[in-house]
Structures are given as structure tokens and as C-alpha cells.
Simulated assay, not measured.
Amino acid sequence: MLISFHRSLMLKSLRFVLPASFCLALLFLNRAWILNDQTLFQQSSKSSTVRVTSPAATIPKKLWYKLGPNGLNSELQGYVNTCLSKNPEFHHEFLTDLSGDAFVKEHFASRPDIVETFLALRIPIVKADILRYLILYEKGGTWNDLDITCEDVPIREWIPAQYKESTGLLVGLEFDVDIWVRQFASWTIMAKPKSPHILMVVDDCLEAVREKTREHNVGVDGLQVSMIGDIVDFSGPRRLTRGVLKSLSLILNQKVDNDNISAVSEPRLIGDVLVMPDYSFANSMNEQFGDSGKGQRLVTHHYAGSWKNDHGGQELSNSVSLVPSSP
């Protein structure tokens, strides 16, 4: 490294004029500098930790939700209440189609490609996927889908003490069994503001939209569910997973892939991304596919699947829910 070269040159110049004991002290200091440089990007084994410097910001105590045009029915309200009641110190906000559009226009005016693409999209689930990434990038906090219930562990305790200062993004595996390629659940995500990994996911979603508009020779507002293929791959969990691993690979200057997120039996820190075992966010899926790993559940996903129709979700609407948000 260039910095190591200058340190070495400094030592050679000083050895003729400084006492031997002082030079010896500098040699030890130089070795410590080099070891620190090497450790920053050290390749981890599956069970070890790779650390990068995280932004100074903490993960905000904020819960984010997106409402459909019909607001919350009693079942969904019950799910949401489990998270609000068990995390009273967390503020919460419910965005609608209208307020989601306003959020993007206000906070991403410097990125007209984001604003124009987002506002033109007519597939509700794709807009909802991209909106969660944009919210987490800009504001940070915890995103929950409406069909999530929180279990007995408060959100403030999800990150183990030894990882609290290092974690910039927390994701949980949706499943971790050999018959599947591993992927992160997108129904619950926790992030610090301005996570580069989340921005990578956003940019990859925009590129996917551009590819499909070129392929089908339509504008963004002309895209239909039948044109984009698998939504899970297009903007959902698989897109999230690929984007995060791609971003980590670039930042750590080393390949981070499926092997790094397999056989996760306890929280695993890769760079500043904390990967939670599949039982944390997806225990029902975990048990369904015969994964015998047991551990503490953090949330339960109830698979309402309201987006699974010919339109990719409920029709877009400007209706406003009566469910209040906290300050």
C-alpha cells in the first residue's frame, strides 16, 4: 500500500538521527498500522465476521408501514398492533399511495430518474417494493409488511450487543435449506439511513424497469405484471438479496455470495450487514421445508399475499386511511 511505503521510507530516514529505542517504538507502531490495514478487508469464513466502518447514525426507532387503498381491516390491524404495543418507544408511520408519492417527490428531487420511474409505475406491488427501499435509504428504521406480527423480543433487542455499533443493515433469511438458493425476506428490514446496500437495490430495480420497457417497447406506465415475470425476482426478496450481496462485494473488495449466507445458525455480521437465521423472520417457512434449526423467533409472517393477482396487488388509489401515525 502507498501509505505503508511512506511509513517505511520515514523509518529509514529517521534511523540515522534518532535513538535506537525510539526507532524500535516506531517499528512496532508501523507494524500495528499495517495489521490494521489488512484486517479491515480480511476475508471471513462462513461463521466469522468481516467489519467495515458504518455511518455514525444509529438505526432510528421508527416503524414504517404501507397501506393499500382499503386501509386496515381488523385482521391486519391486529397484526400491526402486536408490533406497536410491544415497542412503545418506537414512532410509527403509515404511508398511503398518495403520501408515498409525495415522500418520493420530496426526498428524491435530486434523482429525477427515481421520481419519474416511481410515479409512472402502475404495478402496486412493484411500487410498494421500491417504496420500502426508498424509505429505508432516506430515513432508516424498520419496515414491516402489514401481515407481520412481532413476537416477544422487543425490536431494540434484535441486534446482539456486540454488533450494535457495527450494524448498518439487518436482514433475515427467508429459508436456509439446501433445496433453495438463499434469499433475504423483504417483509421486515431494518436499516440505518443512507445505507449503500439499499441504494444498490433501488438502482438495480430501476435498471430492471428500464430493461423491461425496452424489451416490450412501452413506457414505464405501460408495464404490466405479465411483462415483468416473477415479482419476487424483479423487485422482491431475490432482488433485495442480489443487491445487498453485490454492494457488499464492491465495498469489501471481495466476493460475497450465497456461500456467505448459508448455514446461518446465529446472527452473522458480513461487513455492516447483520444476517439473521431463518427462524428469526421466517420460522413457519423454516419448519415447512424441514429445517431442524431452532431458535428465537422475532416476527411471524402470515402470508396475506394481497399482491398476488393479475394487477400485482390492489388497484392504486388516492384514498387515505384513518389509521393515525405517531409523531
Rank of each mutant, 00 (worst) to 15 (best):
T167K: 03
S21G: 07
T167Y: 00
G313P: 10
S85D: 13
L24K: 15
E315R: 02
P324C: 10
L240E: 14
V115P: 02
I3T: 10
S319K: 12
Q288M: 11
S226K: 14
S325W: 06
A32I: 14
I59V: 08
L24T: 10
A282L: 01
V153F: 07
Q296D: 09
I130Y: 02
Y279F: 15
C23G: 06
G141Q: 11
K127L: 09
K194W: 03
L35M: 06
V299N: 04
L269H: 05
L84V: 08
R111T: 02
R242K: 14
Q183T: 03
Q254E: 14
K192P: 04
E215C: 06
L274K: 01
S326I: 03
S110Y: 08
F94Y: 10
V218T: 14
H301G: 00
R268K: 13
A128G: 07
E315W: 05
V52S: 09
G271A: 07
S8T: 12
I34R: 13
H301Y: 05
I125D: 02
L316A: 04
E106P: 00
A185Q: 13
Q38R: 09
D178V: 10
P124Q: 07
S21V: 03
S226C: 07
S44P: 05
H6C: 10
L76V: 04
S21I: 01
F108I: 00
F103D: 00
I130C: 02
E215S: 10
A208N: 15
A120C: 11
E207M: 10
S292H: 12
D221Q: 12
V275A: 02
Y133S: 03
I270F: 00
A25D: 13
L136C: 08
Y279R: 05
V50S: 12
N253Y: 11
I228V: 15
I59Q: 06
A208T: 10
D176M: 05
Y279H: 13
L14H: 11
R268D: 04
L14G: 13
M276G: 04
F16E: 05
T82G: 07
A191R: 08
V80N: 08
H311G: 11
F90I: 06
S85F: 09
V115L: 03
T188S: 09
V299W: 03
E75C: 01
D291W: 09
T142M: 12
N87H: 13
V220F: 07
I114V: 04
V275C: 03
T213V: 12
H107W: 14
A208P: 00
I155P: 03
S249E: 05
T49C: 12
R156G: 01
S306H: 14
G236R: 09
L316E: 08
I155L: 15
A161M: 09
E89Y: 11
V52F: 05
F28S: 15
V323E: 08
I135K: 11
Y137I: 01
V225Q: 07
L170W: 00
D310N: 13
A128H: 03
V220K: 04
G229S: 11
G71D: 07
I198R: 11
S306K: 10
V275T: 01
R51P: 02
V80E: 05
G312V: 06
N283A: 04
A56P: 07
D97G: 02
M190D: 00
V273E: 02
E116Q: 15
V264L: 12
P112S: 09
Q162N: 12
G219T: 12
V104K: 06
V264I: 15
S47P: 00
V171F: 06
